[in-house]
Amino acid sequence: DDDTEEEEKAAKRGSGPDPGHCSEEDEEADSDMEDGGKTSTKHPEDEMELEEDVEMGSETAGALRWKEGLAQKATDAYLRQQRAAPNLRKLVYGTVVAEEEEDSKDEEDELGGLFKVSRPEKNKRVGADALDCSRFQPDSNHDWDQEEMLASIIDCFVTGKWEEDK
């Protein structure tokens, strides 16, 4: 069976921290029916995986066990990404060139060399006419009904734990 093979494989390698992540050899072993499920789990984490690929090399995990402890794995992946410490200065100040490059794309749509097709801009240069508002929308990943979230800020209050020197 493919299934049992998969599980054994995973056990041999030791359970990898992120099963949404799969190497080439893993994909070969997959049967067709699993492909759909696998790709859908991969998708939202694509961005993280780009970074993780470099770190973890060919480390993989069982294909069928991807459902187990998803929340825990997402948390782990999130923390790993946080630890990767992006260069904030570059993020803030270093993107000017990238923005300007996008402009040149939409100059092509011309009818008979006379009329230009004017399309509402959806993806391109969303920023140019964006709403001018200083409000910072909350992170949608934070569910404040969860006990863990509540516990994560408990020391912000005078009722929480104080540092030694105060």
Binding site: Q82, A85, I153, C156, K161
Partner: peptide, 14 residues
């Protein structure tokens, strides 16, 4: 100058 500051492991301060 923009420096990220990580909270300590023991601190639960967001």
């Amino acid at each position: 100058k923009i420096e990220p500051q990580k909270p300590g492991d023991e601190e639960r301060t967001g």
